[in-house]
Design a protein around this nucleic acid. Structure first.
Lengths: 336, 336
DNA sequence: CTGTTAGCGCCTTCAA
DNA sequence: TTGAAGGCGCTAACAG
């Protein structure tokens, strides 16, 4: 391995001078800089980041911890986060938690050991508080994306859940639906709570009475199908909802599958709308009516907030960025 | 920051003993091990990887370098790669190249500096050779996934392009199509060459004569729409193909859009089939007939090959894993 | 503008 | 089974 000592020897300078050159120190004579740079190129020297980090206490490594990169919503967050990170000279370590708190803990520990400079995280739920506090204790800044843990304040970039749910409910009531059900994720996750509360408020605004029977629970992961099927089967036939609001894209897709299993047609028998587009390529074959959140921007802005925290250029006060969603009406709620 | 010295002092042992404990050295008295572990827990000590790497020469960091994480095909590769990496105790650094060789080079340099132990890569094309040789020079092993650079041999996990293209062509000829066009990526990418060659062979096998007019070129990125539109417009109306084979998912989707612009119906006027599913959630709203490659497995196996190389448990000979695709017939080629 | 010294946190090597 | 010395590659702090 080529080190600054090799460069120094060949360029007839001290290692410190080489260090100054690679760090763009201003106090270097132009001629020596050129000489050193020449040798660096000849020997194809690449600075060793580990050694650097040992003294500088920064690794220029950040992490994105999300439930599942293969959820298109998080895919787009990842792309946004990576673009911003690269732009600012940081590398991105990816971690999937599968909504599992233990897996999240495992990651957090690895990341602390690796010495990442910061973490952009969509926590698995309120139980993540312990993991987040570990980061805080180590002075590793983190920023929430999509979800927060209210007990542990930090910068966040989230969607405007209340407004979005209200828009979705209004769309459904405007179509004449009065028996509207919601299939939601676990209440331990901030967005599920927000969406549920907004759902009830929106119903009331439309003069409808929220009914416990119409609020089903499952999780936000890919394999919620069977839970949704049994949840729907538990509803009395004669009171079956005419519209279903799914709290995320996987639930939306699995609701379509569940209704298919139950031999119900969409939208003729039941209309379906969901949060977040299940398609990464949004408009080539649209079916589901969705509230599409600006996932790329969430990742991009989240990473920006994070790196500002890392570099100490952020204000002391916690920042909250709330982004609106776009409601895209498609065939799952309105016949062509 | 808590170091082995802090632990040593509090446990009344030497730092070296602490080091031995955290490395599970066998030659440690059980009682001292327990004592040290106790203090480690009390002080919430986490080993510093940078310092460790400085002597051990390994970082337990690997990288996945792909064109675009937001292409569902690569998303699944990433998920597979990450799962395997985590399982073997490695962390994954993600890099998107956008099929851009300079961006790839920038990444490779960063990764060398970061000191990753290995790279799983879908290179941007034959021009990646220079970047890959840099890795080789630094003794950083890499494994190809999806694509290879023939001039630089290395382990690889790819799809069976010839067999898949032949299956797709057979599907189309069986439906009676004789004017079949292919829209392909750039010839500098191995899979584009393989797919084109297989396309011509498959046509001949079906008794058809390959015609240059029916081989259109574009790129594998998201925004190929305009190129595809103008490419299709250049074909004489009376000789317009009755079926189009798209060389990847983005091309497939953009071909649908292009045909829509040209006011042609799919599949009535033109049938369309493509390589790789554009949906990450495959079967909720199927339209496109696709050759679906096992992307998750490609990432998973690729990471396994890579880590075997890193750990020196791989055979000297280059390994090639070739995985078959599954052809899923849907409405873009066959009316319901 | 350039060089020397010391140390970041850990591990290899040798010695006890 | 344990410890002491030295060094991994780099940079802060000081000196010149």
């Amino acid at each position: 391995m080529v080190t600054i000592y090799d460069i120094a020897k060949k360029a007839n300078v001290s290692p410190m001078t080489v260090s100054r050159v690679i760090n763009n120190s201003p106090s270097i004579k132009e001629s020596t800089r050129l000489k050193v740079e020449q040798v660096i190129r000849e020997l194809e020297y690449v600075p060793n980041k580990q050694a650097r980090s040992l003294t500088s206490k920064e690794t220029r490594l950040v992490s994105l911890v999300i439930p599942d990169i293969s959820n298109p919503f998080f895919t787009n967050i990842a792309r946004g986060a990576e673009d911003k990170a690269l732009q600012l000279g940081y590398q991105l370590i990816l971690g999937n938690t599968d909504e599992n708190q233990d897996k999240e803990e495992k990651y957090v520990k690895m990341l602390m050991s690796t010495g990442v400079d910061g973490v952009l995280i969509a926590p698995t739920g309120d139980g993540s508080a312990a993991n987040l506090k570990k980061l805080t204790k180590r002075r590793i800044p983190f920023v929430y994306v999509d979800r927060t843990v209210p007990a542990v304040p930090a910068d966040s970039v989230t969607g405007d859940n209340p407004a979005t749910i209200k828009g979705l409910v209004q769309h459904l009531t405007a179509l004449g639906h009065t028996r509207i059900a919601m299939i939601n994720g676990p209440g331990s996750i901030s967005i599920a709570r927000e969406r549920e509360q907004a759902f009830e408020e929106a119903l009331k605004l439309s003069g409808l009475t929220p009914q416990p029977m119409y609020t089903l629970g499952t999780h936000f992961k890919k394999d919620s199908l069977s839970e949704i099927v049994s949840g729907l089967q538990a509803i009395p036939k004669q009171a079956f909802p005419t519209a279903i609001l799914a709290a995320n894209n996987f639930i939306g897709v699995n609701t379509l599958r569940a209704l298919h299993e139950l031999q119900l047609r969409v939208p003729e028998d039941v209309a379906v709308a969901c949060f977040d587009d299940p398609d990464i390529i949004p408009d080539y074959n649209p079916f589901l009516t969705v509230a599409s959140q600006p996932a790329y921007d969430m990742g991009f802005l989240g990473m920006q907030l994070l790196i500002e925290r890392i570099q100490g250029t952020a204000p002391i006060a916690t920042r909250r960025i709330v982004l609106p969603a776009e409601i895209i009406v498609r065939r799952s709620t309105v016949r062509e």
